[in-house]
Amino acid sequence: MSQPARRDVLKSLALGGGLTLIVGPVAHALAPRPPGQPADPATRWALLVDTRACKVDCAACVDACNREMGLKQPTDPDFDPAHDAQYIRKVTLRDPDTGHTTAPPVMCQHCAKPPCVDVCPTGASMQRADHIVQVDKHLCIGCRYCMMACPYKARSFVHQDLTDQKPHNPRGKGCVESCNLCVHRIDRGEPPACVAACQRDGGGAMVFGDLADPNSDLNRRLAEAGGHRIRADLGLDTGVYYQGL
């Protein structure tokens, strides 16, 4: 394949710059949300995980999530895998035919049509205008029907009293909780803790962005290489895409 001529490259850059000027600044780029301003319904926050860049033994995203949200680390001596909350986990997948192994992170998939929201009797399980799915801890009665309904095992139940909670993630015994995409960070204009950690300490496998923004890096990558969604057959229109599965 021949190298592109310098003139062609310059032409492309000029065209790209011109298009950017025409479109204007990225409509829903990550920026702080001023207090009192409601979440933007035109935004669809989403994640992309490139499993080819996600090392099987790397848990940077899990560690960062646990630190950010005030959860116990699996390495803690008093960690109880049956009862302690896990908002994000690495799931090791092995193809029995080929032996190929990957370990993508799995968390709340922030469905556009979330079953947890459908089944919740009180409306505690709710979807923010920008499609982030979370639990209103004031309305949760602890019936756990959302946990039964979630196809991704993304939810945890608080089984006992907790101490040392993070102010941005108040947790209550008897309530259900899950990944909320670090909504407090997003509102500050920062990416979720798992994504930041993956970019900083991991393989750079996780990308966060606005699915509704055609110019987002996330959309560009999806347009180039496509993406797979877990249990897409359920038609839940999840907001977490995977590449390389």
């Binding site: 459908d118 919740c120 009180t122 409306g123 009665i141 602890g142 209550g172």
Partner: peptide, 22 residues
């Protein structure tokens, strides 16, 4: 058996009509 049986009033005053539980 609810995690928060003390919030029974919440269940009686907040309804999500798409929920078969409600």
């Amino acid at each position: 058996d609810l995690g928060r049986p003390d919030r029974l009033t919440v269940a009686m005053t907040h309804y999500n009509f798409k929920s078969i539980f409600a």
